[in-house]
């Protein structure tokens, strides 16, 4: 595919416009977050004259971000580990057809994608169970059973030869030991992709946190940001500093693990 100069220029202009639409807003947010309040009011578009990191300190303290971040990491770790473990233990026998009704069980999980929204009864159930406004209740509501990790793992496991299973069981290796010591290391790339995607999902959740949590000390960071921006509607610079603090971990994660994230997203979509 050779390109002539004309179409190459058009292409680069197209890319340039795209980059402006995608990068300028993020730059503008960052620029606003390091301005003083008066500087912002005088000219919203000016480049910040200095890096006012006080905005960050103030936002961090006023919003009580330390506790929100702690909560978010806790939810992230627990939900991710549990949902990945559940998906692995379910995906393995299904992909190998080691249990009765493997296909039926698989279909049952696929059907979940097309059923009505479960939020209202879920809320009622957690309320009745006394799990409303608890960490456990929130995480139960947040964790998807099965879903994309299951589909992804099932198809991934089909590429891992069955010989491994048999060799292991002949060696007298127990089932759980086999999963943890042999299978999971073999599934590393798949697990990494799904774990990161699931962690990002937990970090970014705000709706479940609005519905299932009422106590500030339990809020994850995105919910904390929502409350903070509601309270300081006039303090644009502070708001943006808070926003950057929520986005920064994701950005760093993304910089390092870009390929896993994108691979996971693509695979999840196509397998599903």
């Amino acid at each position: 595919m050779r390109k002539n100069t004309g179409s190459l220029i058009v292409t680069y202009v197209f890319i340039a416009v795209l980059m402006i639409i995608y990068l300028f807003p993020l730059f503008y947010v960052f620029n606003t977050s390091i301005k003083s309040k008066t500087e912002y009011i005088q000219n919203t578009l000016s480049i910040a004259s200095s890096f006012r990191y006080e905005n960050y300190i103030e936002a961090f303290n006023r919003a009580n971000f330390a506790s929100f971040i702690g909560n978010s990491v806790f939810y992230m770790v627990v939900c991710t580990v549990l949902s990945i473990m559940m998906a692995v233990f379910l995906a393995f026998p299904i992909s190998r057809n080691y249990i009765k009704f493997s296909n039926a069980i698989y279909l049952l999980f696929i059907a979940g994608l097309f059923l009505p929204d479960a939020t209202i009864p879920q809320f009622q159930m957690l309320l009745k169970a006394g799990l409303y406004n608890t960490r456990l209740g929130y995480m139960l509501g947040l964790m998807g059973g099965g879903g994309i990790p299951l589909f992804f793992f099932v198809s991934y496991l089909k590429n891992i030869p069955r010989d491994f299973d048999e060799a292991a069981s002949i060696d007298g290796c127990g089932y759980f030991r086999y999963i943890f010591q042999i299978l999971i290391p073999l599934m590393k790339p798949a697990i990494a992709s799904m774990a990161i995607l699931s962690a990002i999902g937990v970090w970014n959740d705000v709706i479940r946190a609005i519905i299932y949590l009422s106590n500030k000390s339990l809020f994850p960071i995105t919910r904390g940001l929502h409350v903070f921006t509601g309270q300081y509607q006039n303090d644009t610079t502070l708001q943006m500093a808070a926003l950057v603090m929520v986005a920064a971990p994701l950005l760093i994660l993304y910089l390092f693990l870009q390929r896993y994230i994108i691979d996971g997203a693509v695979a999840g979509a196509i397998k599903a």
Partner: peptide, 13 residues
Amino acid sequence: FYVVMNLGPSIAT
């Protein structure tokens, strides 16, 4: 987990 948290509530809607 799936039956209690997803499938059941879905039908309960």
